[in-house]
Amino acid sequence: MSEPKKNTKMTVFKTDRHEDMAAIFFVTVVVASILIYMAFIIPSVTIKAPTSGKVVAVAVQKGSEVKKGDLLYSLQLKGKPEPKKYKAVTSGKILSVTAKPDDAVKKGKDVILVLQHEKGTLP
C-alpha cells in the first residue's frame, strides 16, 4: 500500500503558514523595489491626469522650481461645483508642461506635466 504523498502537498509551500510568510516576504520585496525605484532610480515622473475632467489652470511653467505642497494644476471634474486642486507631493523642477487650460483630459491617458523630483523623495 503506497502512501499518498501528494495529498498534503499544498503549493510549493508546505502549509498556509508557509504560504502566508512567503506572501509577506514577496510583498516586502515588491514594495521595497517600488520605493527604491521611485526614489532613486528614475530621475523624473510624468504626471498624467488622475481623473477625467477639464483643465482649469496650470500653476507652473517649464523650468520652475516647486516645493512640496505647491499648487501644480487644477481640474474641473464632472458633477463637482469647485475645481479640484492638485499639489506637488515632493519638491523638484518642472521639466515640461503639456496641458493647457480648457483641455479635456482623460484619466491615466493625457499627460499634464513632467516633474524632476529630488533624489530620495517619493514623487
Binding site: N7, T8, M10, D16, D20
Partner: peptide
C-alpha cells in the same frame, strides 16, 4: 482534495493542512 479546495485563499495557518490530513 487539495485541488478541490485550492480556490480558497482565506484558510489560516495549519487549517487546510489539517483538513487534508483528516480527509486522507
Amino acid at each position: 482534495w487539495n485541488d478541490y479546495t485550492a480556490h480558497d485563499w482565506l484558510s489560516g495557518s495549519g487549517s487546510r493542512a489539517d483538513f487534508l490530513e483528516y480527509a486522507r
